Deep mutational scan, measured.
Amino acid sequence: MVQRGSKVRILRPESYWFQDVGTVASVDQSGIKYPVIVRFEKVNYSGINTNNFAEDELVEVEA
């Protein structure tokens, strides 16, 4: 279970941040499909630095 402030590695192959490390900004408990919002240092092609992920697409590298 990841929690706010954890450092996580992204396992979603189609993601711009695949294999990159980001910080968990928040975790939604309402039961949505992609409840974990992760914030990154670098921006993607659209200038965005956050994205939603499912918990099984993340691996915690640092608490």
Rank of each mutant, 00 (worst) to 15 (best):
D20Q: 13
Y45D: 15
V36M: 03
E14L: 09
V43L: 10
G5I: 02
V38S: 00
G31A: 11
R4N: 08
V59T: 08
S6L: 06
Y34S: 03
N49D: 11
E41N: 10
E14G: 13
V61D: 04
V43N: 10
K33R: 13
T50K: 06
Y34E: 04
V2S: 03
V2P: 10
N51R: 03
T23H: 05
V8Q: 03
Q19D: 10
S30A: 08
L58P: 02
V8R: 01
I32F: 05
S15I: 04
I10V: 13
S6D: 10
Q29K: 13
K42F: 08
V61S: 03
L11E: 06
R9K: 11
G5E: 04
P13G: 05
Q29D: 12
G47E: 03
K33T: 08
E62Y: 11
G5W: 03
R9H: 06
I10M: 01
E60A: 12
E41V: 08
I48Q: 15
P35N: 13
I10N: 02
A63L: 11
D56L: 06
R39L: 11
L58R: 01
N51A: 15
N49Q: 07
Q19G: 14
K7C: 14
V21E: 05
N44H: 12
N44Q: 07
E55R: 13
I32Y: 06
E57F: 01
G5Y: 02
F40A: 00
S26D: 14
R12N: 09
K7Q: 08
F18R: 01
N49M: 06
K33N: 09
T23F: 07
T50Q: 12
P35L: 11
R12S: 05
K33I: 07
K33H: 06
P35E: 07
D56S: 12
A63P: 13
R4E: 13
N51L: 06
V43A: 14
V38H: 00
Q3C: 12
V61P: 03
V36F: 13
D56I: 08
W17R: 00
F53L: 00
S30H: 07
V21K: 03
L58G: 01
K7F: 09
N51E: 15
D56A: 08
K7T: 08
N44F: 05
S26L: 10
N52S: 14
G22C: 07
K7W: 08
F53Q: 00
S15A: 04
V27D: 01
Q19W: 11
I32N: 10
A25G: 03
A63H: 12
K42M: 07
Q3I: 09
P35K: 10
V8C: 08
P13C: 10
V61M: 07
Y16S: 02
I10Y: 04
N44C: 10
L11V: 05
Q29P: 13
P13K: 13
E57L: 01
Y34T: 03
M1C: 14
T23V: 13
S26P: 01
G22M: 05
R39F: 12
V36L: 04
E57A: 03
R12T: 07
Q29A: 10
I32R: 08
V21F: 06
S26N: 11
E14F: 08
S6M: 14
G31W: 07
D28Y: 05
F40D: 00
V38I: 03
S6C: 13
A25N: 05
T23K: 04
N44G: 06
E55I: 14
K33A: 12
R12P: 08
M1H: 14
V36G: 00
Q3K: 14
F40Q: 00
A25Y: 11
F53C: 03
A54V: 02
M1G: 14
I32V: 13
Y34R: 09
V24N: 02
F18P: 00
E62A: 11
Y34H: 09
S26A: 13
I37A: 13
N51G: 15
L11H: 04
I48V: 13
N52A: 15
D20I: 09
R12E: 01
E41A: 10
A54K: 09
Q29T: 14
L58W: 02
S46I: 11
V24R: 00
M1D: 07
V24Y: 04
V24M: 02
L11C: 10
E57N: 00
V21M: 04
V24D: 01
S6Q: 11
S46A: 15
Y45N: 15
V27N: 02
K33S: 08
Q3M: 11
I48F: 11
V24Q: 00
S6K: 08
F18A: 02
Q3Y: 06
V27K: 04
G31S: 08
S6R: 08
E14D: 14
E14V: 05
F53M: 01
S26C: 15
S30M: 06
V8T: 00
T50S: 10
V21A: 01
G47H: 03
N51I: 07
R39N: 08
Q29F: 11
F53H: 01
G47K: 03
I37C: 15
D28G: 07
L11N: 06
E55C: 14
Y45F: 13
I48T: 10
E14N: 12
V38C: 05
T50L: 09
R39K: 13
Y45W: 13
D56P: 04
F53A: 00
Y45R: 13
S30N: 08
G22W: 09
N51C: 15
I10K: 03
A54T: 05
V59M: 13
A63F: 12
K42E: 07
K42A: 07
G31P: 06
Q3R: 14
